[in-house]
Simulated assay, not measured.
Amino acid sequence: MSHTAHIPSHRKPRRSASKVSLRAGVAGGVLSTIALAGAAAPANAAQPVTETIEMPTLTGDLATTAAATVQATKTVAADLQLHAAQDAAASSAAKDAKKAKDDADQKAAEAEAKAKAEAEAKAKADAAARASRSAARTKLSSSSSDGSTSSTTTFKSSSATGSAASIVNFALAQVGKAYVSGATGSSAYDCSGLVQAAYRQVGVDLPRVSQDQSATGTQVSLSNLQPGDILYWGSSGSAYHVAIYVGGGNFVGAQNPSSGVVERSLDWDSPTGAVRVL
């Protein structure tokens, strides 16, 4: 091969490793040939040796490798960012869940404490009401041994007419009969049993117990009573005793086992309120 030989360069998009090695070998051989030719040239050669050598170009393979490396780096970075975002989201969700649980526990504890306080207050109110009813019953059951509180005077109100007169007359006719808890006549009554029996004479069917009777009809003032009105002791809807107002400031009621059905003055034991059914 001449020392001025030109080695052509062949560029292709991609080369395999074996082709790159082959070209490197060819290039090495060419350089060796050039070296030998230079050694064999006359020492007095006037013209310098000019060589034009084109080395194999590997730019395509290197660019492809670099691009692949950059893409892999980007993929790894994206994966790391995704994992970091997922970890941050999981941590935030865990904090939110813990806060929600703490808030729920606090609300539950507050609700439990409130319910307990309300239950205790209701228990105290019920106990006070029971004590009040017990004291009232004790007062009703106390009667004078000299007979001053066991009057059996029969009173017929001249102002009672119609159904009211029938109720008053029936109540007065029961004075002197026995008091028996749960009895509704005809030889014995309890307080609400007497009131119910009196109103049944005029076709009015009242509730059985004093609590319900005290909430039946229209509430009226004690200063505006009429014969036949129902008197109650306690509060409307939870009364512990009832009787019938017969006029003239008196009432008839089945008081207690020791006194039975009696007629009393309102001054003897002033009722709490009254209702008018007729």
Rank of each mutant, 00 (worst) to 15 (best):
S158A: 14
R276P: 01
A173E: 11
G237C: 11
V220C: 12
A43I: 08
Q255R: 01
A125K: 15
S270D: 03
S18G: 11
G29C: 07
K116I: 10
L62D: 06
G247W: 04
I230R: 01
A136D: 08
A100L: 10
S142C: 06
S166V: 04
T138K: 15
A117S: 09
E120V: 06
V220L: 13
S141K: 11
Q86P: 06
N256H: 12
K177V: 01
A188K: 09
F155T: 07
E112I: 09
A88G: 02
A215K: 02
A46D: 14
G28F: 08
N224Y: 00
A254T: 01
A243S: 10
S92R: 15
K114W: 09
R15Q: 12
A40Q: 10
N44S: 15
S221P: 07
S221D: 14
S18L: 14
S259A: 09
G253I: 02
L266F: 00
G228V: 00
K114H: 08
K74T: 15
W233Y: 14
D105N: 07
A188H: 06
S235R: 04
V261W: 07
D212K: 15
S158H: 02
K122F: 01
V180A: 11
D267W: 10
V262Q: 14
A123W: 10
S32N: 12
Q174A: 00
S270N: 04
A125V: 06
A17D: 10
A131D: 13
T57M: 11
Q81A: 13
L82P: 02
D267L: 05
H6K: 09
G247A: 09
Q174Y: 06
G249M: 10
T57L: 13
L62P: 00
D79H: 07
T33G: 14
H241L: 03
M55T: 04
S210W: 10
D102G: 06
A85R: 11
L266Y: 01
A121C: 11
P56Q: 05
H10M: 11
A128E: 15
N169W: 00
R130F: 03
M1C: 07
K116N: 09
D212G: 13
E112D: 14
Q71M: 06
S150P: 10
S9N: 05
G182D: 09
K99P: 01
